[in-house]
Amino acid sequence: MIDTALTIAFTLVGLAVALSLWRLLRGPDAPDRILALDTLYVNTIALLVLFGIQIDSNIYFEAALLIALMGFVGTVALCKYLLRGDIIE
């Protein structure tokens, strides 16, 4: 039961990653690409957590947490760069 659900969810999230990648490559503007990167890291967290359920192990939790932290900081830094032309003032 859960295995079937996991397979379906893996497919859906995989498609989501593909769509985000398409937006990342296509653009057309810098904010679009940043948004696509932002979506990609959130999708990665979903993939990691699903994988953790599949192999019945908690070992990827820290990785998911770190991706969440670093992804947010990265998005903020990129936005700040677009807004001010500089990250650290």
Partner: peptide, 18 residues
Amino acid sequence: AFLIIAGGAFTFIGSLGL
């Protein structure tokens, strides 16, 4: 199973919107 599939579906719809 419901939570997992709902999660996957919402993630997909988010990227579809993107």
